[in-house]
Design a protein around this nucleic acid. Structure first.
Lengths: 201, 201
DNA sequence: GTCTATAAGGAGATAGAC
DNA sequence: GTCTATCTCCTTATAGAC
């Protein structure tokens, strides 16, 4: 490492800029969505020119893919760091809380878009899909354990709970409460968790 | 009416074509979303040329606005036609079931998009916003009645229930269950209603 | 009212100088 | 590696013939 300090330094700077680009892409993406996000937006937000941006990421699809991979890695790290003494239900609740706070903090929802175009693009991204499948396996196991232990409704097919769980991580009600009810983030999280697990009744 | 049969007939044909255009726009919109829907798509689906399309609707925004207005009118009609003997909870459940079936039938979700672009466009559309506010008043009243009668959780602020209710009408879990679980439409509706009102537990 | 042809502008991606 | 300038394609919208 100390043999090539200049190169190492350069690499470090490169990584830092890459991180800044991903931060900018995340911010623009969470605000405008994939279709309306332009590479000019991202370059402008980072403060570099478009060709420089393309030196780091060879296409818009790759850039967005990497931003989402970073998000999923955060989720996988969070799950891995959960106290193993927690019940399946507590784990699911904790991860949902984490996802909601990420979003309220300007981050991305797990399901960045329901548009077929974006979905298809992501499904072609092997790196991304590996993360999705890994996370999905873990959550599916938690749902089934929760049902066996009677903590989750065992009359519902596991898929219904699992897909609805994903949907709650990107529930638009969060933005409505933030924008129209001016509700503090902590209250939003608390209420969204309650609605998710207890329903409207 | 019988004084001007030719004109009346022409008007009828015009209305019919307008209906066909709105049907096509609805189909394309539900599949591709606003940003990716092109006027060529719609014109092609109807079987007319683009300039003809612009004779009926002067812009893409107006076309989409009218399609959504038709959807909201359907919802308002449905609410107006509900048996007044039903409880607030039964009414809310019935309308949600209607909205889910419309979507499963290739129609549009109530919240056509969470993108700021589309949202802003719709908020400038007075005709559309009048419908939204009318429907919102009625649903808000139902939520509050339901809470007073103890049918809906009264620990939750009404806004939380109301916004979450809107979110359920466009829950992406519906598409997942349709696509990945190959679940029949009736089962999807039944399970989504149960998850919405009872939660995961 | 319907079409063919086209204007006007935006956005992804790149050439080539420094 | 970074920038200015540019290419190319796509999409909204319209002009003008029939």
């Amino acid at each position: 490492m100390s043999i090539l300090p200049r190169l190492s330094f350069k690499n470090q700077a490169f990584k830092l800029r890459e991180h800044a680009i991903l931060d900018a892409a995340t911010a623009v993406l969470s605000q405008k969505g994939y279709d309306l996000m332009t590479m000019d937006d991202v370059a402008g937000a980072v403060g570099i020119s478009k060709p420089s941006l393309y030196k780091h990421f060879k296409s818009k699809e790759e850039l967005v893919g990497e931003a989402l991979i970073r998000l999923l890695d955060g989720a996988l790290d969070y799950v891995a760091g959960l106290d193993s003494a927690l019940s399946p239900l507590q784990k699911l609740s904790s991860l949902l809380e984490w996802a909601l706070r990420v979003r309220l903090d300007g981050g991305l929802p797990f399901l960045p878009s329901t548009s077929p175009h974006v979905r298809e693009m992501l499904m072609r991204n092997v790196k991304y899909m590996l993360r999705v499948m890994k996370l999905n396996r873990q959550l599916e196991a938690l749902v089934k354990q929760g049902q066996q232990q009677g903590q989750l409704n065992h009359e519902l097919p596991p898929d219904v709970i699992l897909f609805s769980y994903y949907a709650r991580t990107c529930d638009p009600a969060v933005e409505f409460l933030q924008k129209y009810s001016k509700m503090p983030a902590d209250d939003i999280v608390r209420h969204m968790l309650k609605v998710s697990f207890e329903g409207f009744r």
